[in-house]
Design a protein around this nucleic acid. Structure first.
Lengths: 232, 232
DNA sequence: GCGAATTAGTAACGAAGTGTCACTAATGTC
DNA sequence: GACATTAGTGACACTTCGTTACTAATTCGC
């Protein structure tokens, strides 16, 4: 086993086809929703993630932004690559390799002309296996990033109530949070500032509107957490 | 802006070349080290990440394992993809796109025959720009994962002292930790169990050896942390 | 042999953070 | 006007965390 030496120079001879597949996420009536594009290859209605081949020299995130805009009508608020996927030939366009990108956008109505629709995560139509895997990975990545980056704020309009914000966190984390604790932690973070507007929505006391405005940056050097391991 | 409709079916026509580039990390004399392969294209000594084109149908992680084994002599303890990279034509093998993979392995001596060497992260030789980017990304990913997965244990031999473990965490996090706090948190996590062996290493009191043996799984449902945002 | 230096390991205290309950406030509904 | 509903806050108990200060076991220099 010792005499196997690495090749010094080996040309990457094999040519393959590449696609960028985008998972556009948005909150929609108390659930996370994914944007799917209609495609009817054989008369039956089928759905797939919006995708395209990147143009020569185009960065993956730029391609994802372009692809999102084509289906949604506007550019997403945040993009992040979630990895490359290669299970052989399970892509709607038969691409050998897909680069998955997750895109976040506040709730928005679709043009009724557009050949795309929102689907609740819990009620997705059948997808190509690779697209299924990319969606799952995108959700996992979003969930992991939730308290590393201000991701939740990208799923909301510029001003929002604290209950809205808490709702987004609950959607992303998949569990309920306690109101008082949530607000206390948010207060201590200096991430939002109140506006002087209030929103009355049906019954109950009107809620103050806030905007995302990170002010301080506490160099919060914390210890190590051993209790966050997600898997064996 | 409304009339732009997504293409229903668009073949991914462009063919490209693909490489898997591996960042093999290991602790080496109080610093993280990267495994680089020697390549001497023009007489001058040059270095690059171990890489190869994936074989048809081979998963990226499998390719990365194979590539690591060719340079290191053994398979790594943990592999994780860190993304696709596409800056045009800055790859040593001229691959259009690279899939970056980070591999972790305990300290190991290299065969002196092998055309690969360990380089401290702080003293890397010049690399192709894309390889530079993949190394940086690999470090970032490893640092982010440190308390989401038992990554640090993959950089240690099967048994280790708690000071060893703390040292790995300090290498990965890039800052010093307090001994008492570190041990208290580790104790509460039920991740390690003591062996009945002790190791005396030069001066000082001998240290007990532990092994990684996660026992309980506290469903530690914690609140939201707003103070961990890493960037604007 | 013996003290100094060095590394391992723990107890305990004060500060900060977190889960929870209970309350007040402002609106719509009947 | 009573009630349901949603927003927002105060306070208490409990946990967690950073830190200091200590004890324990070994090697080194003399």
């Amino acid at each position: 086993m010792r005499e196997r030496l690495p090749p010094l120079v080996k040309p990457a001879t094999r040519k393959i086809t590449l696609a960028v597949d985008v998972v556009v996420l948005s909150p929609r009536s108390d659930a996370l929703a994914v944007l799917l594009a209609r495609s009817a290859p054989g008369g039956r209605e089928r759905w797939s993630l919006p995708w395209d081949a990147p143009m020569p020299g185009e960065a993956f995130e730029d391609a994802a932004s372009r692809i999102t805009e084509a289906s949604l009508g506007s550019a997403p608020a945040l993009l992040e690559q979630v990895g490359a996927f290669a299970d052989a030939r399970r892509h709607p366009g038969d691409a050998d390799v897909s680069v998955g990108v997750v895109a976040l956008t506040p709730p928005a109505e679709l043009s009724s002309l557009a050949s795309a629709e929102w689907f609740s995560l819990s009620a997705l139509p059948p997808l190509a296996p690779r697209h299924r895997a990319i969606v799952d990975r995108a959700i996992t990545v979003a969930r992991q990033r939730v308290d590393q980056s201000p991701l939740a704020f990208r799923l909301l309009p510029p001003t929002f109530t604290l209950s809205d914000l808490q709702g987004i966190y609950e959607l992303l984390l998949g569990r309920r949070l306690h109101k008082a604790s949530f607000r206390r932690a948010l207060q201590a973070s200096y991430l939002v500032e109140p506006t002087d507007e209030w929103r009355s929505e049906g019954r109950g006391r009107p809620a103050q509107l806030f905007r995302y405005a990170p002010r301080k940056r506490r160099g919060a050097r914390r210890g190590v957490r051993f209790d966050l391991f997600t898997e064996g």
